[in-house]
């Protein structure tokens, strides 16, 4: 028992299995940074330098998706959808897919409500991000976490 405790401490402290511990710690923040940058770049490409506000959008996605190759996704944005106040577009992103862009849904006042459903591929457990562009130039953003048990790319 004592022996076990020591070896675990040694591992955590990066002494016993130091190389492995360092590898694990070394990769994770870098990968997370790459995801965040990819997502930020994609969002910037879609909406420019504007800063999104949180809220207004509801993302309806399963918390756990058994099959990442077809994950049902519905979005709805609060808006009266009149000729002078409507949702122009909703950009969808996935932060850990090979490419962050998923789709852009472009609405018109003729829709009456700003909502739509699609089915998306998610390579792994990740966040789905929706960014809405309103006709008055305001930008809103919401995200939802989806846990994927089987990935949706390649396969």
């Amino acid at each position: 028992m004592t022996q076990q405790t020591v070896s675990r401490r040694a591992f955590v402290g990066g002494m016993g299995a130091g190389a492995l511990a360092i590898t694990v710690v070394g990769i994770t923040p870098q990968a997370a940074f790459a995801d965040a940058k990819m997502l930020a770049d994609a969002v910037k490409k879609a909406i420019g330098d504007k800063t999104p506000e949180q809220g207004k959008i509801t993302i309806d996605a399963p918390q756990i998706a058994e099959n990442g190759s077809t994950v049902p996704l519905s979005i709805e944005v609060e808006s009266p959808m009149t000729a002078d106040n409507y949702v122009k577009a909703v950009h969808l992103f996935a932060d850990k897919n090979p490419a962050a862009e998923v789709a852009t849904l472009r609405f018109t006042p003729a829709n009456g409500q700003a909502r739509a459903s699609v089915r998306v591929r998610l390579a792994q457990t990740q966040n789905v991000v929706a960014v809405a562009e309103m006709s008055d130039g305001k930008i809103y953003q919401t995200q939802a976490a989806v846990k994927v048990t089987i990935g949706g790319c390649g396969g």
Binding site: S69, T70, V71, M81, A94, N97, A99, E101, V102, A103, L105, F107, A110, N111, G112, Q113, R115, A116, S117, V118, R119, V120, R121, L122, G152
Partner: peptide, 15 residues
């Protein structure tokens, strides 16, 4: 984008 599933399904409202 390619992140849309095979046999793409799209639904939307119309007033």
């Amino acid at each position: 984008q390619p992140a849309i599933s095979a046999n793409p399904y799209i639904s939307f409202p119309l007033k």
